[in-house]
Design a protein around this nucleic acid. Sequence first.
DNA 1: TGAATAGTGTAGTTAAGGCTACAATTTGAA
DNA 2: TTCAAATTGTAGCCTTAACTACACTATTCA
Lengths: 138, 138
Amino acid sequence: MTTSKKLDRSDPHRRTRRDHSTETAEDYVEAMAEIIERSGTCRVVDLTKHFGVSHVTVTRIVARLQDEGLVVTEKYRPIELTTQGRRLAQRSRQRHEIVYEFLLALGVDPKVAAIDAEGIEHHVSPQTLSKFKAFVQR
Amino acid sequence: MTTSKKLDRSDPHRRTRRDHSTETAEDYVEAMAEIIERSGTCRVVDLTKHFGVSHVTVTRIVARLQDEGLVVTEKYRPIELTTQGRRLAQRSRQRHEIVYEFLLALGVDPKVAAIDAEGIEHHVSPQTLSKFKAFVQR
DNA sequence: TGAATAGTGTAGTTAAGGCTACAATTTGAA
DNA sequence: TTCAAATTGTAGCCTTAACTACACTATTCA
Ligand SMILES: [Mn+2]
Ligand SMILES: [Mn+2]
Ligand SMILES: [Mn+2]
Ligand SMILES: [Mn+2]
């Protein structure tokens, strides 16, 4: 039983707003995990390049991620992921990858797929994700 | 020629941020067009119910849409769409419909598809949209 | 070893989009 | 017709996420 109830017409928008409120955290820990894997450590400047925003924006967001227990920082030091941060990074990365591969399987060009996947990933429910996965594996 | 250049790793995020900056306008004019079609006029209170936000939030967003030339309002009167607003509504509605039908065609439950489509629609490029359309028509 | 440069921190501003509380207007029913 | 309810407006607050400008720390290399 998937607890259905009735669908209020405002429910989809409530959900979209909730997706957006977790989007930044997902993208940041995902980027940090990748950067650490690639280069050993992740610094503020790496994230400014990754996201194309100023270092001030990165610093503020990272501070909030620390409050949320996803990262640990120390002044002028590289940023580290907590266990919780690594878990979220892994889940986000898997979902991102599935969405990207799904778009490729549909015939979308790699560059376009990379762009679309970055926004779409946060709005894909578990059920839709599993349909994507099934499609990729034909 | 689709002017390729090379893909900076910050491009997808720039694009996602741009999508989010136009999302509200798209959803609002789309909702207004539907409400007007269904009931003749669209009032602030209709939009508060549609989106599940306070009437203050609706009022402020509608004021901005007026600055942008998408709607016309007069104190205590129903909100009207401009020609430009109707054009955007139509485009948004078509794209939304295609995304929704695509998810259904993939086998996603209607309620889940309605929720996911509401967020996904804004991140679907023309190319991806045409792949979605082709898939729906098998 | 010092400077220059790179990286980071901090202060202050802006805009969008959420809210509550209260004031004003419109409308519908008695 | 009048007045109570519904609707809309306005004032003021919050959070997120963007920015510039300037200060401070760390690193590199001449
Ligand atoms: Mn991502
Ligand atoms: Mn993303
Ligand atoms: Mn989004
Ligand atoms: Mn939407």
